[in-house]
Simulated scan of single mutants.
Amino acid sequence: MTFIQPSRFLRNALVLDAAACAATGLLLSLGAGALAGLLGFPPEFLRGAGLVLLPCAALLAFLASRVRLPRLAVYAVIGINILWIADSVLILVAGWFQPSGLGIAFVLAQAAAVAVVTELEVIGLRKSAADEVGAEAVRL
């Protein structure tokens, strides 16, 4: 397993991702009833999406606090973010829901925000140094 020493840039991107997940998770899980009418999504769907984001936020905050990270963990974060973006688009085009104009805008805005954070994580990963000493210690 290859480890990296996360750059400050990567740490900040992970913290930003964690904060965005926590804020959106709290908004959706606690405000699902009020948001459902405005966005045109069922409250159960919004609450479920919010509850999925809360443990993700905790995991991202944990990863951001580590001195060393498995490179695979960062790839997983990036991959999951890409899946979130794809699912966001799918929700709009599949016809499963009848979102309002505000609901469409909300889904597109959060997908765009996730895309920006994901790109920041990719840049941060490139700026991070491989931890060859740590990788050797793990192999022993």
Rank of each mutant, 00 (worst) to 15 (best):
M1K: 09
M1R: 07
M1S: 10
T2P: 06
T2A: 13
T2S: 09
T2W: 09
F3R: 07
F3G: 00
I4Y: 02
Q5L: 09
Q5H: 09
R8N: 10
F9H: 13
R11Y: 01
N12D: 14
N12S: 11
N12W: 02
N12T: 05
N12V: 03
L14C: 02
V15T: 08
L16M: 09
L16K: 14
A18Y: 03
A19M: 12
A19L: 12
C21H: 14
A22H: 08
A22Y: 08
A22M: 13
G25C: 09
L28R: 06
S29D: 14
L30F: 14
A32I: 02
A32G: 08
G33I: 05
G33L: 06
A34M: 11
G37A: 08
L39D: 07
L39T: 03
F41H: 09
E44G: 15
E44P: 01
L46K: 07
R47G: 04
G48R: 14
A49W: 13
V52P: 01
L54T: 06
P55E: 04
A58R: 11
A58D: 04
A61G: 14
F62C: 02
F62V: 10
L63Q: 12
V67F: 01
R68K: 09
L69W: 08
R71F: 10
L72I: 04
A73E: 06
V74Y: 01
V74H: 07
Y75C: 05
Y75N: 08
Y75H: 15
A76F: 07
V77C: 14
G79W: 11
G79R: 12
N81H: 15
N81K: 15
N81W: 04
I82R: 11
W84Q: 06
A86S: 11
D87I: 08
D87G: 09
S88V: 02
S88M: 01
S88I: 04
L90M: 10
I91W: 12
G95H: 02
F97K: 01
Q98S: 12
S100F: 04
L102V: 11
L102K: 03
G103V: 05
G103E: 04
I104Q: 12
I104H: 01
A105Y: 05
F106T: 10
Q110V: 08
Q110P: 00
A111V: 01
A111P: 00
A112D: 01
A113L: 15
A113Q: 04
V114C: 10
V114K: 11
V114N: 00
V116P: 08
V117N: 10
V122C: 00
V122L: 10
G124N: 01
G124S: 07
L125A: 02
L125H: 05
L125C: 01
R126Q: 06
S128N: 07
A129R: 13
A129C: 05
A130C: 04
A130Y: 10
E132M: 10
G134T: 04
G134C: 01
A135G: 12
E136Y: 04
V138Q: 07
R139P: 03
R139A: 15
L140E: 07
L140K: 13
